[in-house]
Design a protein around this nucleic acid. Structure first.
Length: 346
DNA sequence: AAGACGGGGAT
DNA sequence: ATCCCAGTCTT
């Protein structure tokens, strides 16, 4: 009997959330479709990425790669180009690999079984749950940062969200709240509430549809939740680049190492000693990565001999391109900014 | 279980 | 300067 009443309470909160969503949910382009391909793309783009930041990328990506066949048959470089500036570039590489998986393993049809979806490169528990619920009506919670924040506050639950079991723990809570046949909308509702009302800082509790039920709010303990113990320590990283130019061309190569900016283009990292007297100056670039304070020492090397330029490019397997052509390559943000500063106004 | 992986906006 | 965002993959 006790269990029954508790479940009824959970369900009541879920229905409140859903009612709020129908009136106050955000109007986003991918909310108008149940096409698993489009939902997949949008879920990957918006991993660790704000809606405002990725919205244009989503639109451009879908326009250029409207279906899984188009994506699978594209060059990796072009997929990367459409990812330029989004960060976490392995997402784009995995996206392309997964498109080929769908062609080869699933006959070119986006899989509908949850376990199959989970097999796709770059698709983890969250993304698989989002696709399964939104596109295929499966009653599965797409537990993300919003779920952790909202649920930990509503139940004043101090379960450590950085713990490995947090996904399953909060998933169980969420499923209890989920109205039948509304898993997709429920998941979207939780994201919108977390984004617009139950924000990390200064949540707008007075407008929250769940404030009557919210334990943390009624206890005045909102700032205590969610509990997150994982601590990250910033480290320092220094890189050296040489911007080697001849007339209107400069040298680039593609990063292959499994480190930051894998598969993105960059400048030479070392030059022959005889070039050193041609260095016209150093520019220092400071850039903050997620857990790194990055300093780039950037030297500009202006060559006046086409033979030296060509020989160096050939021996070290660099490519020579113009500034105009560089728009067709994906550069790390700090290098992109440098290029822009060099050529702006021309 | 812990680290690595980008970039940008809010506070 | 710090936090954290529609997380996933690799030790």
């Amino acid at each position: 009997m006790k269990t029954k009443n508790q479940n009824a309470d959970f369900l009541h909160v879920g229905e409140k959330l859903l009612a709020w969503y129908k009136n106050h949910g955000r109007d986003l382009p991918f909310r108008k479709t149940n096409d698993p391909y489009k939902i997949w793309i949008c879920e990957i783009i918006f991993q660790q990425t704000r809606i405002e930041q990725g919205l244009n990328h989503y639109r451009n990506f879908i326009q250029r790669f409207p279906d899984v066949q188009t994506l699978a048959h594209a060059e990796t470089d072009e997929v990367l180009l459409y990812w330029k500036g989004l960060g976490y570039y392995s997402r784009a590489l995995n996206l392309h690999k997964a498109a080929l998986q769908i062609i080869n393993d699933f006959n070119g049809v986006f899989p509908s079984a949850h376990q199959d979806i989970l097999q796709l490169k770059g698709v983890g528990k969250y993304t698989a749950a989002a696709i399964s619920s939104i596109c295929f009506g499966k009653k599965i919670a797409a537990v993300d940062g919003n779920f952790y924040r909202v649920l930990s506050r509503v139940f004043a639950d101090d379960f450590d969200v950085s713990h490995a079991k947090a996904f399953d723990y909060f998933s169980e809570l969420a499923v209890k709240m989920m109205p039948e046949k509304e898993a997709g909308h429920f998941n979207e509702a939780m994201m919108d509430l977390g984004s617009e009302i139950c924000k990390p800082k200064n949540p707008v509790c007075i407008y929250c549809p769940l404030n009557e039920a919210c334990l943390a709010f009624n206890l005045g303990k909102i700032p205590l939740f969610p509990v997150k113990t994982k601590k990250v320590k910033p480290t320092d990283l220094e890189l050296t680049y040489y911007f080697v130019e001849y007339k209107d061309q400069f040298l680039i190569k593609q990063r292959q190492v499994d480190f930051i900016w894998k598969k993105l283009y960059e400048f030479p990292t070392e030059i022959p000693v005889v070039f050193e007297k041609l260095i016209s100056g150093q520019k220092k670039i400071s850039h903050k990565l997620t857990h790194k304070n990055l300093t780039i020492h950037l030297y500009k090397v202006t060559l006046h001999s086409k033979k030296m330029f060509d020989d160096f490019a050939t021996q070290e397997q660099f490519s020579a391109i113009t500034y105009e052509d560089s728009h067709q390559k994906s550069f790390p943000k700090p290098l992109e900014n440098y290029l822009f500063s060099l050529f702006e106004g021309e």
